[in-house]
Design a protein around this nucleic acid. Structure first.
Lengths: 241, 241
DNA sequence: CTTCCTTTTTGATCGCCGTCAAAGAGTACC
DNA sequence: GGTACTCTTTGACGGCGATCAAAAAGGAAG
């Protein structure tokens, strides 16, 4: 569901974590980049930091760099003519800012403090064009995004807020598992208003949905960013139906 | 938003209308297949007909053929564990039934009488693998689908039924324009319940939404399948916001 | 034309969520 | 630790759509 897919090669490319230091050999299943390619890209990458809430780039800005998240969470949103934005959350390993056009097609903002590789667009393009068969990896990533967008649509068809929330929490849990992070509890880096926007409901409605799940002893919340599933059965039933 | 994207090369590939007879040189912009490729595929294609409502294939069936619509409209929907299906509508020129897996990942049913090319999967795979650089076309199609899925999500975030309907009608009009069909009025081949499912509302709510637009003199309906926009200004305002 | 069936519309009631407003919790900064 | 800010929760009310049910309109077949 990353939102900068304008033509092709638009969307964020998930480079998995060969980029992410400290995770020796985990999650090898999507080996998107060869060692050579990674080495090449690493040479031209600079490490940049963004504090929480900081804009990384704005929709419409000249696209001069591509980013790859080392740590932290980024929220990407593309504003349309009118109405709600197309939203997506990006996690460590996600590559974003790629666009065929000269300008970014979405806005990226750090949801938590973010450390990322920043690579000049020109260099990236040179490497991409020189290494053939990179398009297969783009296809894989596109299918990934397509699945996410379709999941988002399925979520939004749900009429009750609690169900949407449950589906969202389950998704976050799955993403966490895919990242090989501990899952004793679900971590929600973004704030409530971002979640509400993503779920297509208002803040009060989201708050009540959380409350409903807590009252029913299906989950517990620890602070604003941590959720623990107490009743796994009820949780799955809530998230699936 | 076609729903059979499971890994890669999954989703329907829009082959435009070089396949569609009777439209000499229209809509050349997405030239997905070369003349050679088209000739190759045409040789192995059989023409099949489906009557309105007929299943073309079921989710889970062995995937032994790929289809390309000559005329008519197909509704594809993938059932998930529980809850609503992932829906999409397919029009002349759309290619569907492609899957990397051995089985179809969605169900396709003729919404109108359908005439289509039916091609054995093996032959298609042989041609696809022999002609390199077909992946670029797949990427283009994937981006197309991604845009559609994201548009669907944006539509579903709208809270009022009339707005969802207006956005849907505008989308249909745009697809019609892209197909170079006359647009004095919008043609809706699918029945109300399909539209309601796609919009994530119930049939009564959809009926009332139509009514509201008619009462406000924004549209007129002729039969069940034809809609004419009377107040273009109001219509755009309704569909955009 | 008539009958039977499916699809669509209309009606009435209820519940959930949007809206507006205010209180409460958490955080940063001094 | 205290203050000021943002973020989140809670409350009250109204509206829109879900639900259930029944009537009406189309379509297909004789």
């Amino acid at each position: 569901m990353p939102t900068n897919a304008t033509r092709m090669a638009g969307p964020a490319i998930h480079a998995t974590d060969p980029w992410t230091p400290g995770h020796p050999k985990k999650r090898v299943r999507h080996q998107l980049l060869s060692n050579d390619e990674r080495a090449q890209l690493a040479k031209i990458a600079a490490i940049v930091r963004f504090e929480k809430g900081e804009r990384i780039y704005n929709q419409g800005d000249r696209a001069d760099a591509v980013f790859n998240i080392i740590s932290g969470v980024v929220t990407a949103y593309r504003m349309l003519a009118d109405g709600p934005p197309v939203m997506s959350f990006l996690y460590p390993g996600d590559l974003f800012g790629l666009t065929e056009e000269a300008r970014y097609t979405n806005t990226a903002r750090a949801t938590t403090p973010v450390i990322a590789y920043k690579m000049p667009l020109q260099s990236v393009q040179r490497i991409l064009s020189s290494s053939a068969n990179l398009d297969v990896q783009i296809i894989v990533k596109l299918c990934d995004e397509l699945r996410q967008a379709q999941h988002h649509a399925v979520l939004l068809v749900q009429k009750r807020a609690v169900k949407r929330l449950a589906m969202f929490l389950e998704l976050q849990e799955h993403l966490q598992i895919a990242r090989n992070e501990p899952i004793s509890e679900i971590y929600l880096p973004m704030d409530r208003s971002s979640i509400a926007d993503y779920l297509g409901i208002t803040l009060p409605a989201l708050s009540r949905a959380f409350r409903a799940l807590v009252v029913k002893k299906i989950i517990t919340t620890r602070g604003r960013h941590h959720v623990k599933v107490l009743d796994r059965e009820a949780f799955k039933k809530m998230a699936d139906a």
